[in-house]
Amino acid sequence: MDRHDVTLTVNGRTSTVSVEPRKLLVDVLREDLGLTGTHVGCEHGVCGTCTVLRDGESIRSCTTFAVQVDGAEIRTVEGLAKGAELHPLQDEFWDKQGLQCGYCTPGMLMRACEIIEGNPDVTHDQVREGIASNLCRCTGYQFITEAVCAAAARMKADSAETTGAQA
């Protein structure tokens, strides 16, 4: 089968991989780039387990061919923490027990990231509606919603502090 070169910038690092046109983005991330944090759940775009951000917007990597996102900037769960320091979303998920088995968590975190970055003043109800794109079989969503709201508040406070410091 034909192969195509696909160049992706994933979590700030640019790589070129040679792939069959049918190869899914999630498989390129997991198999070619070794980023196994992004999982597959339903395999046809319903459950959101495979969610990653493409140029800042969430997509289903299990129904996206890698060749469709040639040249894109991709963010995955592996890009959230800065070394030892967890992203506020990760830290609040830990604190509020917004995860049990952890399998939907990477997709949920990336979707939550998109929600907060798109609206730093996001309300509890907006978070709940926003994460309805992603299924979680363990938690019943309540502590996820709590965690996302807490992270949003923290990120807003942090950014106000940073802005204040700069001013």
């Binding site: 997991r30 196994t36 769960v77 967890l86 830990w94 995860l99 952890g102 968590t105």
Partner: peptide
Amino acid sequence: DPKFLRGRGGYIGD
């Protein structure tokens, strides 16, 4: 939790 939050769960598919 930390390994799962970092995407390093080590599930069978990984």
